[in-house]
């Protein structure tokens, strides 16, 4: 039987309903989310029919994280903070096609700070502006 000690890594699974994809002008394919290209734009994107097909189904964004309990002390706390960051990113209406980049960037940001701060006090320095500052790049 698997036990708490067997948790090797964490994976983020985000589900995007069809109506949200259409409203936000994005489509989900290959475990990521892309912006629908402007009409007439030359690119290697899928055809309009393919994009419509992608948008007609529930889409997924999947991110395998680096935060492993074996390597990161108090990994569960780091994951909790990351969950808050992802939640806030989505609730603030940030672009879904950059969400996966945000997740990896936020995870790195949290892990780099844990090198000198315990997770419990990680955001004590500037709690109100911590994610504001970080999200400006997205």
């Amino acid at each position: 039987m698997r036990s708490p000690n067997d948790v090797g890594e964490y994976v983020v699974y985000i589900t995007v309903p069809p109506e949200v994809q259409k409203k936000e002008c994005v489509y989900c394919a290959c475990d990521d989310c892309q912006a629908v290209p402007s009409s007439g734009e030359e690119n290697d994107y899928p055809s309009e029919d393919d994009i419509e097909n992608y948008q007609s189904e529930k889409g997924y964004i999947v991110s395998r994280l680096c935060t492993c309990p074996e390597d990161v002390e108090d990994a569960r706390k780091v994951i909790s903070i990351l969950n808050v960051a992802i939640t806030q990113y989505i609730e603030r209406g940030k672009p879904l096609d950059k969400l996966r980049d945000f997740i990896y960037g936020a995870e790195s940001h949290i892990l780099s700070r844990t090198e000198y701060a315990h997770p419990d006090t990680l955001l004590e320095e500037s709690p109100a502006t911590f994610w504001d500052r970080f999200m400006r790049g997205f």
Binding site: M1, R2, D6, V11, I14, P17, V20, L65, N83, E91
Partner: peptide, 29 residues
Amino acid sequence: LMYMDVLATNGLRGGIHVGIDGTTSYDDI
């Protein structure tokens, strides 16, 4: 019995679901 370690958030921005799952093997993925 299966051990589960999850954080699942629902109801975001028109129905987006975020799940962070502790994975115990590649079979789980």
